[in-house]
């Protein structure tokens, strides 16, 4: 049976917000989130009852984030810039600024693979479905992304115990 849409927002809203932050940066994450859930609401009646709702939402977020990034390329705003002052969208603490810069500096595919695997928890096969290409390619993009992050954000190696 299909759940009321409100349930989906409650269950996956936080994950989608974090994914949007990784892909488009803190500044535009709220817009990407709003576009994602509005598009999802529009399409929801056609979603098969047994579909993985989270993977479906992340796939929509992926497309909406690309739209946001494209729109931004037409404007003179640097990709992944961290606002100096807290915005209404909830900027993570200043101690994470290095991490945000490291994430923003990743090649797009790696950043996406890291977001969908490590933040959203999707399987590589699901990520391959979103990014195109094979599961192996998705796995490699995520691994390369983590390697690059480790290089550019050394502090991460000593914090964030596995859960």
């Amino acid at each position: 049976m299909k759940q009321p849409f409100e349930k989906l927002v409650a269950q996956h809203g936080g994950t989608v917000l974090r994914v949007c932050r990784v892909i488009v940066g803190v500044h535009d994450a709220g817009d990407a989130w709003s576009e994602t859930f509005l598009a999802a609401l529009r399409a929801y009646p056609e979603l098969p009852d047994d579909a993985n709702a989270e993977a479906w939402l992340v796939a929509i977020a992926h497309r909406k984030a690309i739209d946001v990034l494209r729109a931004r390329k037409r404007q003179p705003v640097p990709v992944g810039e961290i606002p100096e002052v807290p915005t209404a969208l909830g900027v993570p603490g200043a101690r994470d600024r290095d991490l945000w810069q490291a994430v923003a500096a990743l090649p797009e595919k790696q950043r996406q693979a890291v977001a969908y695997h490590y933040v959203a928890g999707l399987a590589y096969a699901e990520i391959a479905g979103i990014l195109g290409g094979t599961s192996d390619a998705a796995r490699r993009a995520a691994a390369d992304g983590i390697k690059n992050l480790r290089k550019n954000y050394p502090r991460a190696a000593t914090e964030g115990a596995p859960s």
């Binding site: 928890g121 964030g160 596995p162």
Partner: peptide, 8 residues
């Protein structure tokens, strides 16, 4: 490095 959703 361990990447966890909490980072974001």
């Amino acid at each position: 490095m361990t990447m966890s959703p909490d980072h974001f």
